[in-house]
């Protein structure tokens, strides 16, 4: 069970959150103009590193804000927690 630092509410238990997968997956500016391969990459290809991973979480049982954290996938240590508008 993780203790996740919500940028608005502070450290909260994992059960209060919804996981949102990898962060910073760029939504194509104009999906209609990209080719199938580019669109498929957006849909299906995600980083799967052994180590730090930026990912989205939603504090759905709290302030209901989406935000990003950087979590080490080996140790589960959370190195950073930042708001959506903050730079990665």
């Amino acid at each position: 069970m993780l203790l996740i630092p919500c940028p608005w509410c502070g450290q909260r238990d994992e059960i209060e959150f919804r996981y949102g997968g990898a962060a910073h997956v760029e939504y194509p500016a104009d999906p209609e103009t990209v080719d199938d391969a580019t669109w498929a990459r957006y849909l299906f290809v995600r980083p799967n590193p052994k180590g730090p991973l930026a990912e989205r979480w939603c504090h759905s049982q709290g302030c209901r804000r989406w935000f990003n954290i950087v979590r080490d996938t080996v140790t589960h240590q959370i190195m950073r927690s930042y708001r959506m508008e903050e730079a990665p």
């Binding site: 949102g20 939504y27 989205r56 939603c58 209901r64 989406w66 959506m84």
Partner: peptide, 11 residues
Amino acid sequence: LDWMEEWLQTE
């Protein structure tokens, strides 16, 4: 609701 919030807040 979470889905709507995700698009609203992230995109």
